[in-house]
Design a protein around this nucleic acid. Structure first.
Lengths: 137, 137
DNA sequence: CACGGGCGTTAAGTATGTCAAGCACGGCTG
DNA sequence: CAGCCGTGCTTGACATACTTAACGCCCGTG
């Protein structure tokens, strides 16, 4: 292979756009790393992820896991959400805000839930259902 | 309700921190799924993730990838950030302290849950996660 | 000149995520 | 009773994340 340095990255994606995302993420990370004037090995020791793998991630060859993404964000002092946006993170599913005040009274779990006025009846039933299913598991 | 096996399957985490997180995440997902009245297979077909794997994730046997997490959030109409919080996405990296608005006063529901000795810590975390997700929806 | 020593990249190995089939239990319906 | 569906769960094969040990290159020395 054209080992060593100047490899022309002639990698074509035959996949649906996933690699675009990963590639963008990688580029972003590499840019941030270089801006912070860190070498792969330095960053590797900070993140406890191998330099080799970091290299691959930066070139878009792999999609890193949460753990790794988190470490990277940490080492680069980035906002985590930022990084996640760069990873394939579409916004979606926006629930409608429905504020509802009023506190409640004390007691056991079920009573407390039932007394919680900010919840709808459906929500109360749901939570209690979960609670019970945990109890008899 | 967790029918079928009725297996005790007392698989306690002896691994340390890792499984706590994953377990809480799994509990949260399972809770949300049951609330949505979905079976594993239904959710599997919505998320295009196999029912088998979903089962394992819900029981904390595996840490799902971003793709999967995203599909799940989508299928359950959850806010993605919520899910990520439940996945081991805790504090640490907080360059900008973002004071989460905690408008509601002391919640008796949370206190009641925490005081419920028949629940494991992961179960408590899951229930409270559900509860909060309802509150600020 | 040779020699360390830094850099990014590669190759081969191990761990872990993910899937397609099939199992065991239980609820029905005839 | 048998037989079908519907659960959730297990297993064994494969794909992908990730590691450790190299390689080739470039830049300082002595």
């Amino acid at each position: 292979m054209t080992t060593g340095g100047a490899g022309p990255t002639e990698d074509r994606a035959r996949d649906g756009g996933w690699s675009d995302q990963v590639n963008a993420l990688g580029g972003f990370i590499r840019a941030q790393r270089q801006m912070a004037k860190l070498s792969l090995r330095e960053m590797a020791s900070m993140t406890r992820v191998s330099n080799a793998y970091l290299s691959q991630v930066e070139r878009g060859l792999h999609q890193p896991s949460l753990k790794v993404l988190h470490s990277i964000a940490d080492a680069l002092h980035l906002n985590t959400e930022q990084l996640l946006r760069q990873a394939g993170w579409d916004a979606s599913t926006a629930p409608e805000p429905e504020p509802r005040p009023r506190p409640a009274g004390p007691s056991s779990v079920e009573e407390a839930v039932r007394a919680e006025t900010r919840l709808t009846e459906e929500q109360k039933t749901a939570i209690i259902g979960v609670y019970r299913s945990f109890l008899d598991s």
